[in-house]
Design a protein around this nucleic acid. Structure first.
Lengths: 245, 245
DNA sequence: ACGTCAAGAAATGTGCACATTCTGTTGGAG
DNA sequence: CTCCAACAGAATGTGCACATTTCTTGACGT
């Protein structure tokens, strides 16, 4: 028996939420898959109400779509929706790199350099998993360096949805961003204070990502939940910000 | 034959959700107010589980803050958080007006002109309630004219949080935006294709709104839920006489 | 043979009762 | 008189059982 849900365990909610999120992130769930509550509860070893709550949360966050009295399904993202997400990202991240180019602290410069160095190291090691994470965190890092929590939270949500399309459409390909060269060039432009160049590079970077995925249609194939969640267990995911009044 | 209204109506969820949201929008709920589930259920005339679901949704959307085993509370927005929200809006809306200035359809131009005209009409009629709505919708309209649903949805969320601060801090003052002149000027700049001027006007407009609210601290005063939700109901309230022990 | 309808089964939605936790109060000791 | 601690009351969190709806399977009629 792996583990029994104990009293007042708030981590259990996060575990279920994270398990589903991770399964989607790993491309185990094809678009159109119906996530049945009893089956999930049996596979994950928790009560149905807990699965229910996690499903509702995921639906509200946009990861899943719910049809009343029918169930919750893995959405099939269209290319158009993906283009819109990247379009919004272009607006935000264009403004972000401009602002950072115009003014940034010494700490910000150091963190940016460190991140690029880490990406290069991961590239040399051919550690695609780590590179996948770092590539996404690069964009979040830029938002963080602006010192705006709201901005960071918003961009993280957009990034998640971007990677969701990656995961659903092309789970095998682990290249989150086109290449670390882009990130290095963008960072260099920021650090040297060339705002226009940084913004232009960022826009090109994002449009490149769109083109990379554009011709990659998602295929709908039935999925067995038993195997989809094999090896995915209760590792608690990152907790979303719950602020005190 | 039209299906008769069953009790398992999904509209009930929306009613509870909308009632709380409306109460906040009308400034009935002071920051720090605890929203007790049994009290809300009794006032709104629904079951506690329904209130619970609505509260969870509102917490996740950022309207309320929840503390485990303690309850859900109306957040007290700091000036800093408000600045951050308006900062993100500046990034997005600056890009929006630039894009619209560079290219927009004839239909877009017509809708924009019609909206400005309607705002002016509301100003002449001194219809502050209608003007409050129109002022917010102006910013959403600009996002819609870009033809990006994701952008519209995101900006609408930011706008809601902006007006939430307005409602909480200064419920009496019904001036959502500084004045219709700003909107008219921005629209004119967009329609004449002057991107830099439009962006500059929008940035000034938003910073003006921040300064308007900056010196307006929110006051924490206890609130009776019974009177806070008076007249706010999803379904028409039944006679106040019948009540169970 | 095909379309239609009906009955059974399974899944979703909802209310209820109970366990756990927190808060406000009261009593007693220092 | 003040502070600490135990207790009572209420509120939150959770599992369970039932009602409602939908999907599936099978049979019947045209």
């Amino acid at each position: 028996m792996p583990r029994k849900p104990r009293k007042g365990d708030v981590a259990a909610d996060e575990a279920v939420y994270g398990a589903i999120r991770r399964a989607m992130h790993m491309g185990r769930l094809s678009p159109g898959t119906k996530l049945q509550e009893p089956a999930l509860a049996r596979v994950l070893g928790v009560s149905r109400e807990r699965v229910r709550k996690a499903l509702h949360r995921l639906v509200h966050e946009g990861w899943l779509t719910a049809i009343p009295n029918r169930g919750t399904f893995v959405p099939s993202l269209t290319v158009e929706e993906m283009r819109e997400i990247y379009d919004v990202r272009s607006m935000l991240e264009g403004a972000i790199v401009r602002r950072l180019s115009e003014s940034h602290s010494a700490v910000a410069a150091r963190r940016l350099k460190a991140h690029v160095a880490e990406e290069k190291a991961a590239t040399r090691r051919a550690d695609r998993g780590r590179l996948f994470e770092l590539s996404g965190e690069f964009h979040v890092l830029l938002a963080e360096l602006c010192g705006n929590d709201e901005l960071t939270r918003l961009l993280r949500g957009l990034l998640i949805r971007s990677t969701m399309h990656f995961s659903i459409a092309a789970p095998q390909q682990f290249t989150n961003c086109a290449g670390p060269h882009d990130h290095g060039d963008i960072a260099e432009a920021i650090l040297s204070g060339r705002a226009d160049r940084a913004a232009k590079l960022m826009l090109g970077h994002l449009t490149g990502l769109v083109d990379l995925q554009a011709g990659r249609p998602a295929r709908n194939q039935p999925v067995d939940l038993q195997v989809a969640f094999r090896g995915i267990d209760g590792q608690p995911a990152q907790s979303t910000g719950s602020r005190r009044p």
